[in-house]
Write a protein that binds this DNA or RNA. Structure first.
Lengths: 333, 333
DNA sequence: TTGTATGCGTTATCAC
DNA sequence: GTGATAACGCATACAA
């Protein structure tokens, strides 16, 4: 069996209290006993039991991350940012793949509650009142990242999607494009769908361009939906010279479609994406897109959570986005 | 404060033992008290404290995953598979980004040990004797995935890299290519570097093709290294008609390079990748590549770990790979 | 069917 | 400086 604090106490002839003091380097022991004890610790290969510690300290030094899907570049980068920040502050992170399933999410919140996590980060998905209520009633500090929360007690951190989409549309317009199509994300999605569409439409309006329904098609952020969407879009509106896709994956879908059909990018069609995940730089041509500081969002989310766990206040905030010019969009000549 | 088992015992006038029995639905109580107790549980919103449970049960129902980098599609898919399998069996997963750093890895193993995880999965990185020793001495069951272990007590699960690379080369050869280049992974890397190179060379030999150094260039599995590698390769050997890259990312690097230089794929050059991550299907042209069942490897790794945690034996095993034909390679005409 | 008591491995509050 | 000892929240062997 693993040695306990009691074993090393017995072995050195001191009390467990003293050993505990030495372990947590408090004061209350002579240099000599300290050495004896530390020697015994080495010999027995003693490791403190964090579970027992957590029980008495009432904190687990662990946070939970609720995320809809682990297998995307976006999630991966976000997790990377969260884990890095957490590890730096000695926190462990428990991952929970919600699969965008309400029941499963609720179960996970329960679980995290039972596991006594010190905080939770809710990522890239609609943060419902139900989730919010459950979290709040459990008393666990929480922050949402890449999505919004209406409750001030759980702040959020993200980019300003509407402004970002506005910028993307404006970019295309400034390049001389007048007939621009948009491939939106999921219809009615209040976090990444609607705002990006609104931004797009507002830009057209500000630049005194007409917006017609034939310019709009909905996808679901996925590659394949982008592929299908551009096909529809081109059918409805063959004269577009530029297209803004609400995700890089959808943008890649249009690039693939165009490649197959012999539509050259950016010569025949300019396309700008959204997210700037790894695939954006790897596509051919490389994708001009709206950069989200995903990893930074992750670490910033943890920082916010750390404040909360520290009993401080924390406010929602936006992180800056940026348009990265690569090769998929050009000035209309 | 959160209600404890004691609170609900006091509230219903029964002992904590009875409450505990009801919670773990064992037997030893009347239907009537059960109802009373469950009512109190609802009212107080009582949730069992998993930390306390773990302490007495000596298991945490949690596993740790050591992984070199979270932000890649490969890691993401692997995690997805692991988490899914774990969740199904009521296990939570703690993620540990080792950053391919030895010290950090050792620290994490310590941490997982202290946190009393029931098992650990070590992923896609060289599993050193040092790690192995530490894990073994801690008594935590472990399995390595997408890498190898020489110790029978910690089994591994992966595809047969050498055979897979052999198949990739053979594929190209059967398509009529005689002068094939290879962009290998990191030099001397014993897990994904060397075996793939060996497989490639063995295929050439079996098909009685010459292998010369001018056909070989080393990258580090990354996109940018693939880009640089193809440039070098073409310089050393302008007559290759096909190239096998040891990772999809590197293959995308060659596709980008060729796109820029006007080298048409697959007309001028056939390329086959390795991994079949998401990017393979999204590239233009879509990438012909060696498919690794990454997600399945993750869930299989957990299954193996579950056996180990269950006190059973578990042996290393290979999962099948497969060549996915898409558009980046064609018969030489 | 139910309750008492003990222990899980630590930390912390007292005394000495 | 050091040592009992009582928590922490729960499970369980043993009684009743």
């Amino acid at each position: 069996m693993k040695p306990t604090i009691k074993d090393i106490a017995g072995m050195t002839g001191v009390s467990v209290a003293t050993v505990s003091r030495i372990l947590n380097d408090q004061r209350g022991y002579s240099e000599e006993t300290k050495e004896r004890v530390e020697k015994a610790i080495k010999e027995l290969g003693y490791k403190p039991n964090a579970v027992a510690r957590n029980l008495v300290n009432r904190k687990s030094h662990t946070i939970g991350v609720l995320i809809p899907k682990l297998s995307t570049s976006f999630s991966a980068k976000l997790l990377q940012g969260i884990e890095a920040a957490a590890h730096q502050r000695q926190y462990s992170v428990l991952i929970c793949n919600t699969d965008s399933n309400g029941e499963r999410t609720m179960d996970y919140i329960q679980l995290l509650n039972e596991k006594q996590v010190d905080g939770v980060i809710f990522a890239s998905e609609l943060f419902t009142r139900e989730y919010c209520r459950e979290l709040l009633s459990s008393g666990i500090p929480a922050v949402v990242v890449s999505s919004v929360s209406v409750h001030p007690e759980v702040p959020y951190i993200k980019i300003n999607d509407e402004e970002a989409a506005y910028a993307a549309a404006a970019y295309l317009i400034e390049k001389g494009h007048q007939n621009i199509g948009m491939i939106s994300g999921t219809k009615h999605d209040p976090v990444a769908g609607m705002p990006r569409l609104r931004g797009f439409q507002r830009a057209l309006k500000d630049y005194r361009l007409q917006f017609e329904n034939s310019q709009l098609v909905f996808g679901d952020f996925s590659y394949s939906s982008g592929y299908r969407a551009i096909e529809q879009l081109l059918e409805k509106n063959p004269y577009i010279t530029g297209v803004f896709a609400a995700s890089d994956e959808m943008a890649l879908g249009v690039i693939s479609y165009c490649y197959e059909k012999g539509i050259r990018i950016p010569d025949h069609l300019s396309v700008v994406g959204f997210d700037d995940t790894e695939i954006a730089q790897m596509s051919t041509p490389p994708l001009t897109t709206v950069h989200q500081p995903i990893e930074k969002m992750g670490s910033a989310a943890f920082a916010k959570l750390a404040s909360l766990m520290n009993g401080e206040e924390a406010e929602s905030s936006y992180l800056p986005f940026q348009i990265i010019e690569r090769g998929s969009a050009k000035r209309l000549s």
